[in-house]
Every structure is written in C-alpha cells, then in structure tokens.
Design a protein around this nucleic acid. Sequence first.
DNA 1: CTGATTATTGTCCCACTGGTCAATTGTTGA
DNA 2: TCAACAATTGACCAGTGGGACAATAATCAG
Lengths: 206, 206
Amino acid sequence: MKLTRLSDIRRKELRQAAFAVLQREGIAGATIEKVAAQAGASKGIVLHYFRDKRELFEHAMRESNLVLRDAVVARLKGAHTPMERLDAVIDGNFEPHFFQPSLCHAWLSLCAEVPRDEKLKRIQRVIHSRMRSNLLSGLRGLVVEADANDIAFGITTLIDGLWLRLGLQPGSVSRDYALRQVKDYVAARLASAELPPATRPASVGA
Amino acid sequence: MKLTRLSDIRRKELRQAAFAVLQREGIAGATIEKVAAQAGASKGIVLHYFRDKRELFEHAMRESNLVLRDAVVARLKGAHTPMERLDAVIDGNFEPHFFQPSLCHAWLSLCAEVPRDEKLKRIQRVIHSRMRSNLLSGLRGLVVEADANDIAFGITTLIDGLWLRLGLQPGSVSRDYALRQVKDYVAARLASAELPPATRPASVGA
DNA sequence: CTGATTATTGTCCCACTGGTCAATTGTTGA
DNA sequence: TCAACAATTGACCAGTGGGACAATAATCAG
C-alpha cells in the first residue's frame, strides 16, 4: 500500500521537466527524449513512470495548475472582506513568479491540444470552474447573483486574454498594467451593478 | 513580371487546406502530407509552392487573418458615429461564420507557435495593432485619449479571452453571450470615463 | 510547331519518434 | 546473505516526417 517515495519524486521531476520542454519547444517540438534529457535521465525511464506521451503532458498540465492554485489559496488565507477575496484571486493570477512569457508559452501549447484530448479538457474545466467559484465567493457579497455571474466570467476571460497577450507579445503587458486592467474592469462593473440584496453597503468598505 | 494565375490559385488552395488540417489535427499533428491530401494533391506540390512547413503555416495564418479583416472592414463601411464604429469592430470579431470552435482551434495552434516563429509573431502584431487602431477610431470620439487606449486594450483582451474560452469549452460561450460581455464591458467603462475634450456630448448619441 | 518554362507526381533518403524489451544495477526486508 | 523487487539503462524496431530530386505532363511564348 505504501507508495514508494522515490517513485513520487521521479514523477514530479519528470512532470516539471516535461513542462520545461514545453516552454522551450512547444507541443509540436516536445518529445519524450527531450523531456528525459531535461530531467537528466534516459528515455526509458520516462515511459516507465508514464504510460505514454499523452499521460506525461496531462500530468504536466496538472503540475502547472498546482502552482496557480497554491498562489491563489495562499493569498485567499488572509482575505476576509468580499473585496479582499476578489483581489486575492486576481492578484494570485498575476503572481510575478509565474506571470511570465515562457510559462505562458507552455500553457498556450497545452491549451492548443485541449480540443483533441479529453483529459486535458477536463483539467481545463476544473481550473476554470475553480477560478469562477473563487471569484464568486467574493462577488456575491458585492452585487446581486446575476451580475456576480457575469462579472466573474468577465474577469476570468479578461485574465485569460491578458495571459494570451503576454504569450504573444511579451513586452506589451507588464504585471502592473495587467493588474490595473482587471481592477479597472472590476471597478467599472461594480459601479454600474446592483448592490447585493442581503448585505449592507457598509460591509463593502470594511 | 506577371504572376501566373494558376500559381496564385494553388497557393490559396493550399493555404486553406493547411488551415483546415490545423483545425482537425492541431499543430502537433499537422503534416505536409495531410495538407496535400486535404487539397487533393501530392506532397511534392506543397513544397513546390512553399519553401517549407513553416512558410506554409505562416501563410495559413495570413489567410485566416484576411477573413477576420474583411468581416470588420465590411461592417465598418456603414458605420459613421464613433459608437457605430466601435460596434462594427466588435460585431465583426464575432461574425457567426467564423466564431466557431474548429476555427478557434486552428487559431490557438498557430498562437502556440508564435513564440518560436518570428514571422508568426509579426503577423500577430499586425493583427493586434489593426484591431487596436480600429477600436481607437471609434473610442477617440467618446473618451479622452488615455482612457481610449486603456479601453481599446481591454476590448481586444476581452475578445481574445472569449475566443480562447470558445476553444477550450465550446459550449460555455455563445455568440450572443460573448457579444453581451463585450458590450457590457464597454458600457461600464464608458460610463466611468471622461468625455473627450473636443467633442460635445450631443454628438455621442447622434 | 517548338523550345522553354511551369506544374505535378512518385520515389528515395535520412533523421527522428514513440514505444517495447531484455538486461543490469541498486535497494531492501527477512 | 540472498531473494525479490524497483529503478534505470541502452538497444532495438517499425512507422513517419520533412525535404530533395529526377522524371513526366501541361502550358505557353514566339
């Protein structure tokens, strides 16, 4: 029953190596051998730990997803008001550590395969729905349900778009500018939305 | 000097075939042979018209770009007020003909290669800067320059994000919903922006 | 008509890829 | 100590991909 520790470690190394290769080479240029080289191992070992190429890159996507999740969760710890929760999610998505072109390139390559890989599709759905639910946990305290849904969708979409832009034209979107775009969006939409039914305005600024 | 007609026709056929293959197979699965098959020709002919694989897919991206450009230009013809111009650009980007998952999949695959292909990068830049300039031609009549720039960037980003979402979860974003998201965004940001310096408010609604 | 140019095909080659497998080398627990 | 087992390697294979090329067909200019 006890899982071999070494096994877990290798698998993690290989997932990360796979992701690194994805950054450099894109999905079209990513090969098992390159992943092995990146991890300083032999090709055989990669297929010892992962059934095939697909599984390897599916785990690579899970891996990158974890980083994002952790960043958001960490920031969510100290957030108490709805607005703080909202900002936590947004800020977490632009963590300097990983709001970077190379990481974005890998992410893009994975996204490009989503339509042809059911597992990747599922991972994507999970990521998106978690982000949405995190945003809603803040938004519900600020506006009525219908608006909250729309604004949450808008925020995720805007964030996706900013990431995409970072991948396509790295110079054209700094972390600060990206953050400001999202915050301006939130401000503008909150200003023209209905207040929530059960909450008093005072709590918003608290 | 006169370019062979036939040559132009073949090249166009092959560009389109390449794009079709990209929709089905993604960049990782797209091969010259499949493109040839798609066009009902032999592999040799593809490399007769295009220096290599890269060039072929660069032209495929140009091709897809044309479709978008034409859609926007057509709608822009009849637009006279700033607001009409703005809507023309936005509507054009969600033309039912091509706001579709399969097309989006191909587009995504091309985007994923942008970081590793200087030509693709240039095409991307052109597309983006044209969209931006089209948006600005409307926005400048509605808000001050600084706001116009930010809002234009926000709109392009939002549109990119909506396309991306269409690719990742086709069911989750209908054309109508996408349009509403963008329109709501514009409305909210216009409401909280400064009016333009040289234009009288009356002209806005004219 | 004819010579030159262009279009098109099919073949060939070589590098590489994903994946299998047998063999080797630790590692460990009794 | 030794047997069982996990980790790791390197060789191997069949299939495929990109691209070069020579040969053939079609087109066209004069």
